[in-house]
Amino acid sequence: MSEIEKIRVELTVNGKHHVLYVSPCKTLLEVLREDLNLIGTKRGCDDSNCGVCTVLVNGQAIKSCTMLIPLANGCDITTIEGLEREGGLHPLQQAFIDRFAVQCGYCTPAMILTAKAILDENPNASEEEIRDGLHGNLCRCTGYTKIMEAILDVRDGKYKESCGEV
């Protein structure tokens, strides 16, 4: 693997433009964690089954452990580090705290990003639609009930800002 030539990749991550020279065998997850030090994106299985590596790629929730870096070239990526703003937390982040939707927290960044993708696409998503959207994100601790409560609170406008534009 070390003999494979590096390729040039351009990524916009959390609004910041990056030019990177990396092995084409690397996954987006590895590049985010190892090359960009964005360690808020986690790793739990490597075969697209746990969802803790989820990030937004052009607004879509994508499991970064199975996206090879050439595929992400030119993409606009949002990780959990990109959600907090100057004025405070993103509504979903605040709602996760307020609703006790966090235990060990290992699934949390991915859950929040997936929820953001769901609500960005459909701000009035029903509980059923949100359940469908969260289907690929495992949580071992919370039983999902409080995660759903948090997302519904944001959907229902309990927080001043609506979900969206980060």
């Binding site: 937390l89 705290i97 927290g105 929040i112």
Partner: peptide, 13 residues
């Protein structure tokens, strides 16, 4: 509220 909430929702923990 959990004392580790902020760390965990921001990915800073």
């Amino acid at each position: 509220k959990r004392i580790d909430g902020y760390d965990k929702v921001t990915g800073k923990g």
